[in-house]
Design a protein around this nucleic acid. Structure first.
Lengths: 232, 232
DNA sequence: CGCAAGATTGAAGGACATCAAAGGGCGTGG
DNA sequence: CCACGCCCTTTGATGTCCTTCAATCTTGCG
């Protein structure tokens, strides 16, 4: 990842919005890029939040494991997304584990450096607040869906979100941009891999999606949206 | 609610932590207390967030309704808790409805006044950030529980949270401090009132709780904690 | 006393998780 | 280059937890 691309990425990052020029340049100079191979962890649930991370390239999932060993995926994040920023700003340990779905480049800043920047530039804190706010809003939606909607509907929502976030156009539809197994999808939706497999299969049969190994292509967005909205 | 009590309440409020004395006094002077009768709404999903609210007395629930009319309770809030603060700071409409469970006194400040205070005092924004952060952490936990745990376990967790938050000691146990019907509990747990009724009844039979009309008393906290932890 | 709101209980059915087994792709190493 | 093995995926059978529907009971209050 070269300097020009990093600059462009950072300029679009929610944390740098309305950041004064000199502060932005300082961030650019201070970044410590780090590569993480697919399936490796960027950090682990319980680790001290030493550094602020903005994902440069690749995709990762942020997930938690509960008392009985059941994993749940909280977020899937892509280029430009801050990772674990809340923990850094609150100065608490990471509440979840971040695992690379693909080889990733992570832009890192030491936590102390970033807190210092925040003290000197209110815009950073304002951006952090608005970032956390929008994440919270999404979590509330997920919670409501989990509480009230059946598995099929939640799966449709997950695919639509992933398509918006990571999708790229292919012949006839939009392909989810990161490799997700049925198990991965199950951990996002809150079910098991068997249910996901059956649902995808039935949608494939009716031409809604094309499903392959670690791969899903959305073929009919409108119909998927209707399912997500509960208009079975 | 008299001035002394308001002062004490505000001093303990997470939003006022480390707020300079003069700013604190200004907040005290600027507050516009408002009473809200039980079952009335403080604000409604979609309303413009034109005031910041800190609950003075009483309890309220913050809830959303989904496309098919199914309600979900996001939070139960009590004295000292900010209500809808995220929407005010982000300057977006309230994403949920706040309904009083009891007669309430709400301390209100015009949104503009509060945003101005925030511009002048970084501590306010810092407090807002840490508040949203902790709410987010709780939401993530709720999401994980909703995704992986059975109804009984989630109900146990809800009762424990409510006891910690609103409970007061009574003969033999801790009584939940706000009146919640089986339907209310169901909307918190993510199930229906019939399941809640059956669960509470079976727990009452084994001496874990005492359940009455709009009333639950936790009689055996340790056993309830074991259920919440999945050690059936 | 009677009504209304809340709570309980039973019966029935369905959606979904679980268990078990077998069927593909893909990379790797022989 | 082929074959082996691993991981991902599919599919069937089975069971159960939970929702749904319907009816009755309880409690507090006007």
């Amino acid at each position: 990842m070269n300097g020009t691309r990093i600059r462009a990425l950072l300029a679009r990052s929610p944390l740098c919005h309305e950041l004064p020029g000199p502060a932005f340049e300082a961030m650019l100079r201070a970044t410590e890029p780090r590569t993480v191979a697919a399936r490796q962890n960027l950090f682990h649930q319980g680790d001290a939040a030493h550094e602020l991370i903005i994902l440069g390239t690749g995709y990762l999932k942020v997930w938690q494991i509960d008392g009985s060993g059941d994993p749940t995926t909280i977020h899937v994040l892509g280029p430009g997304d801050p990772v674990g920023a809340v923990a850094v700003f609150r100065q608490v340990p990471y509440p979840a584990t971040a695992t690379a779905l693909l080889d990733c480049v992570a832009l890192c800043w030491p936590a102390g450096w970033m807190l210092n920047l925040m003290e000197r530039h209110p815009a950073v804190r304002a951006n952090a607040l608005s970032l956390v706010g929008s994440r919270t809003e999404e979590l509330v939606n997920r919670l409501r869906e989990m509480a009230t909607e059946p598995v099929g509907q939640r799966t449709a929502r997950a695919l639509l979100r992933l398509a918006d976030q990571t999708g790229h156009a292919v012949a006839g539809g939009v392909e989810i941009g990161c490799p997700l197994s049925r198990q991965d999808l199950a951990e996002i939706v809150g079910t098991d891999l068997y249910s996901v497999s059956r649902i995808l299969r039935s949608w494939a049969a009716s031409g809604l999606v094309a499903a392959g190994r670690l791969r899903v292509v959305l073929l009919n967005r409108a119909a998927m949206q209707r399912i997500a909205d509960g208009d079975d």
